[in-house]
Design a binder for these strands. Structure first.
Lengths: 213, 213
DNA sequence: AACAACTATCTTGCATACAAAAAACAAGAG
DNA sequence: CTCTTGTTTTTTGTATGCAAGATAGTTGTT
């Protein structure tokens, strides 16, 4: 059921832990993350730490100055809009690329993730809600059967997650957005691509513009 | 004129060299690239080599199996179509996002790159032509003033370059495609977004479908 | 007191060493 | 001859040490 992620190397583990810490806000935007400190914290040498930080930089979660401290990336509002615009075209391409079969294969999982979002919204667990929301959209893009699109979207998703915690939307607006998941699934079941695409725009851009344009 | 790229670290230099070797076909798809061998070849230790290979993997130019050889990525035809579809929506978004000012700022550079493409096509230097073509499209996306879009497009571009050498288009079709650059610039000067978007589809998807669907 | 230059400290970048796992090879059984 | 199994060799993953450069603190000057 839950996808098992094999963490072979220490670098993988450190990467996942650091990513969680950044996305949870534990490591806030702008903070320095010296390699030696992390090495002691995780009880490993600097080598796997370095690799993890480098990968985080590739995903835009930390910024690297040569021969200087790595720093946790801080999203700004301009970037929030930029991210949303790219998200829209990618998710719309995903919807366009779907076939009835590829939708059927994943619709149950999508429905489950949408329900999870509702659940965590209800009990007020935002961290869990955001994680499920990301998984929902990743699953959506998977339906396109386009590995290039999926890989790029994964990268974008990292920044979307960073954005969500920084945004801190009010409960009612968040609820509205989460409710759209169910409607989107209904459109997809009916094969209504146009309606899906229109809803996606609202669903994604809305979020970013709440932040105050 | 030519953008100066500062290569601070050895890893950067190794990355650039390996990238060139892969994109030129010198390191062909499927080949193994052991760290130690490269270390001796470049006269450095394995540490910067590892970092370079990891980054190449992030750009999809090599594939990494845990505790095993890194391997140069081999594009297949399905992926060629996938890449083209993503390219279309990203470059179309770029065109939509442009303003007359952002176009004016870069139109000269774009024209220069388009001319370079023509020149290298004329003398039959494909490697140089492909490089300029990539730069043309990167510059095009830059006009959108969307750093998220640009970063993702850079990643996609690496695979597009890999694709181009594998495709080996006949001269006449390549010529047709390169000629479209000038027309695109004309549309952009006139602010004709719709025509630009239509042409982009032809320009990009055409390439992929020549490969034989 | 504010600013500049110098010094000390810290951090990264790279090289090297070693252990564990995978790949390659060889020998033996069917 | 082919397939399997065991052994050797190679290759990766990680730790550690050192040098170059950046940061931060200190002193001296205006």
């Amino acid at each position: 059921m839950a996808q098992i992620i094999i963490q072979n190397s220490l670098a993988d583990k450190v990467y996942d832990l650091l990513k969680d810490q950044i996305l949870s806000g534990e490591l806030a935007g702008g903070m320095f993350i010296p390699e030696e400190q992390l090495a002691q914290q995780f009880g490993v040498s600097r080598t796997p730490i370095r690799e993890a930080i480098r990968r985080l930089a590739e995903y835009g979660l930390v910024v690297l100055k040569p021969r200087s401290h790595a720093q946790v990336y801080q999203v700004n509002e301009k970037e929030a809009r930029d991210i949303a615009r790219v998200r829209v075209v990618m998710e719309r391409l995903a919807v366009e690329s779907m076939t009835p079969e590829s939708i059927n294969e994943r619709i149950e999982q999508l429905a489950r993730l949408a329900a999870d979002c509702q659940y965590y919204l209800g009990i007020g667990n935002r961290a869990a809600l955001f994680e499920k929301d990301s998984l929902f959209h990743l699953e959506l893009v998977k339906c396109a059967n386009n590995s290039t699109l999926y890989n790029l979207f994964e990268r974008l998703d990292a920044q979307v997650q960073l954005l969500r915690v920084a945004q801190n939307l009010p409960d009612d607006e968040l609820g509205q957005i989460i409710n759209q998941h169910g409607q989107l699934l209904q459109y997809l079941r009916n094969g209504d691509i146009a309606a899906s695409k229109a809803l996606l725009y609202k669903h994604i851009v809305h979020e970013a513009e709440q932040n105050g344009v």
